[in-house]
Each structure stands twice: as structure tokens, then as C-alpha cells.
Simulated scan of single mutants.
Amino acid sequence: MSDSTNHLYDEIDRQNQHLPASSRRGLIKGTAASLAGMGLFGLMSASAEAKVSTNDANKAENILAVAATAEVLATIVNTVGPEKLGSQLDAVTRRNVQAAAQQEKNHYELLTSKAVGGKEVTKTIYVPDEVFASKENLLKTLVVGDQVFINAYLLGVTVFARQGTLSGSKFARYAAEIMATEAVHRAVALQSLGELGNDRVYAKFAQREEVAGLPTTGAPGFYDIMDAVTVLESAGFGFGKPGSKPGTAYNYDEVAARTPVDPGVNTISIS
């Protein structure tokens, strides 16, 4: 029996605690019969949710730590990119990237607030020098990075929702709201590359990357939050230490102090 069906049966049992044990067993048996009759057992066992492990790697603290550290990286790249490339970026692209820097900084501040309780692994990121070598390199890095963030936040939605508590549902919503913004960042970066920005019917989670010409083209999504770190490290980023490619160290506090604020950015607080 898959983790997802076990979870379903546990929920049925929990939500019907007011009923006698025999009645709860009857409800579970009835649900099992219905799923079997509709041929859904195989579908559930093969679902993305069933593949998201419940081991320590995907515990809430790790997801928050990886997410906060990713937002450190994103704030740095989106702030420094326009500084380095200057007039190589057209006005619209420059404004979109700088607005993304402001938004990533806001995400980091939310994730590390007392209300959420996340803690970054490091504030020092080694960024490959090639990222800032050209407009195309920067934008492709943003497309790849934002997809990693989308995957990570969707994984977070799954893990937090599984908690079955008000706190879990709140954090799941936070993750979904941030993921939606990361999807916008990816779309505008693609559009600035001359590609279709709104190219997906659904935000990509487990599916393979179909955009051509990226370092991650053809690679599948991930079910373990630590794989987000692996993907970023394979692109040459270093977290608190030099990465696998020639790069420069940037400190979040120094960079975030000069992250621009765009008056057009709205919905700057979360409900």
C-alpha cells in the first residue's frame, strides 16, 4: 500500500474519531473498495505525492532552510546582474530583474521571520562569473534557478499540507504564493530571451524540462529538497564555499542593502 493511500486512510480515521472503531473501519473498507473499483490504486501509488518522501530530508526545517538560502542566492543574482550588465539589458528587462530582486528579498525576510522560523544555511554565495558575462547567461540562469525554486516550493506545499493542521495549511499557502511569483520571474526571463514566457499549462514539478538550450534541458524535477541544492551546485554555485566554476563571493547583507525598490511592486505583505 502506498504512502498516499495510507495517509488517506489515516485522515478518514482521524476525522471520524467520534464514530465507533467498527464504523471507522467500515468507512475505510468502503473507500478502499471504491478506489479499487475505479482503478485508482495504481494512479495514487504512482502519483507525485506518493514519491515525496516523509524522511528527515524533507522535514519542514530543511525545506525552510533550503528555501531561505535559495532566496539569498536569488536576491544576490537579481541585484548584481543589472549592476554588472548595465546597458546590455533593455529597460523593461532591467526593471523586471530588479523588481524580482526586491521580491526575493521580501521572500527571504518572510521565511526567516519569527512567524515562519526558517534559517538560511549561509549568507555567502559564490556566483559563477559566467552568470554575469552576458544578458543571455543571466537570463538563462534565472530561468533555471526559478524553476528550481518552483519545484522546491511545490514540494513544500505537499509536505506542509500533509501535516493536516492549520499551521501546515498556512505554510502550504505561503509556499504556493511564493511559487506563483517565482513562476512569473521565470516567464519574464524567458520572454526577455525571445521565447514564449507563458509556455506551461501547469507549473512543472516532476516532469522533464522541455525548454531547449538550458543546462537542465531534459532533466526531471525532484522529490527531495536537498536535490535543489544539488542542481544549483551543479550549475557552479557555492554555498559558503567556492563552487565548481570560477566565481566571486557575494554577501547577502551587503547586496540586499542596495537592492532597489520599485514603486510599481504591490502586494508586499502576506495574509
Rank of each mutant, 00 (worst) to 15 (best):
residue 1 M to G: 11
residue 3 D to F: 13
residue 3 D to C: 03
residue 6 N to D: 15
residue 6 N to Q: 12
residue 7 H to V: 10
residue 9 Y to S: 05
residue 10 D to V: 11
residue 10 D to A: 08
residue 13 D to H: 14
residue 13 D to F: 14
residue 15 Q to R: 14
residue 15 Q to H: 11
residue 17 Q to V: 14
residue 18 H to S: 08
residue 18 H to V: 13
residue 20 P to Y: 15
residue 25 R to S: 09
residue 27 L to I: 14
residue 33 A to S: 14
residue 38 M to G: 09
residue 39 G to E: 11
residue 40 L to E: 13
residue 40 L to G: 10
residue 40 L to R: 12
residue 41 F to I: 12
residue 41 F to L: 12
residue 41 F to P: 00
residue 42 G to T: 15
residue 43 L to Y: 13
residue 44 M to Y: 04
residue 45 S to A: 07
residue 45 S to R: 07
residue 51 K to D: 05
residue 51 K to A: 08
residue 53 S to Y: 12
residue 54 T to A: 08
residue 55 N to L: 00
residue 59 K to S: 12
residue 59 K to L: 08
residue 60 A to D: 13
residue 63 I to Q: 08
residue 65 A to P: 02
residue 65 A to M: 11
residue 67 A to R: 06
residue 67 A to V: 12
residue 71 E to T: 02
residue 75 T to K: 06
residue 75 T to V: 01
residue 76 I to A: 03
residue 78 N to K: 04
residue 80 V to T: 01
residue 85 L to D: 04
residue 88 Q to L: 14
residue 89 L to D: 01
residue 91 A to G: 08
residue 91 A to P: 09
residue 94 R to W: 08
residue 97 V to E: 05
residue 106 N to G: 10
residue 113 S to I: 15
residue 114 K to V: 15
residue 116 V to E: 01
residue 121 V to M: 15
residue 122 T to S: 05
residue 123 K to I: 11
residue 123 K to S: 12
residue 125 I to Q: 00
residue 126 Y to I: 01
residue 127 V to L: 01
residue 128 P to E: 00
residue 128 P to Y: 07
residue 128 P to Q: 03
residue 133 A to M: 08
residue 135 K to N: 13
residue 138 L to G: 05
residue 138 L to M: 07
residue 139 L to C: 01
residue 139 L to H: 02
residue 141 T to N: 10
residue 141 T to E: 13
residue 142 L to W: 06
residue 142 L to M: 07
residue 143 V to H: 06
residue 143 V to W: 06
residue 148 V to Y: 02
residue 149 F to M: 12
residue 154 L to V: 04
residue 155 L to Y: 03
residue 156 G to I: 05
residue 158 T to P: 11
residue 165 T to I: 07
residue 165 T to H: 06
residue 165 T to Q: 00
residue 166 L to F: 13
residue 166 L to E: 11
residue 171 F to K: 04
residue 173 R to I: 07
residue 173 R to Y: 13
residue 173 R to M: 09
residue 173 R to V: 08
residue 173 R to C: 09
residue 174 Y to Q: 04
residue 177 E to C: 09
residue 180 A to E: 07
residue 182 E to P: 00
residue 185 H to F: 07
residue 191 Q to E: 09
residue 192 S to C: 05
residue 192 S to Q: 02
residue 193 L to S: 00
residue 203 A to W: 00
residue 203 A to I: 07
residue 203 A to K: 06
residue 210 E to P: 01
residue 210 E to G: 05
residue 211 V to F: 03
residue 211 V to G: 02
residue 212 A to C: 11
residue 217 T to F: 06
residue 219 A to Q: 15
residue 220 P to L: 02
residue 221 G to F: 03
residue 221 G to W: 06
residue 221 G to R: 01
residue 224 D to Y: 15
residue 224 D to S: 01
residue 227 D to C: 12
residue 231 V to P: 00
residue 234 S to N: 11
residue 234 S to T: 10
residue 235 A to P: 11
residue 237 F to T: 05
residue 237 F to Q: 02
residue 238 G to H: 10
residue 238 G to M: 00
residue 244 S to H: 10
residue 246 P to T: 09
residue 247 G to N: 03
residue 256 A to E: 14
residue 256 A to N: 12
residue 258 R to A: 11
residue 260 P to H: 04
residue 260 P to S: 08
residue 266 N to Y: 14
residue 266 N to T: 06
residue 267 T to P: 09
residue 269 S to G: 07
residue 269 S to T: 04
residue 270 I to A: 02
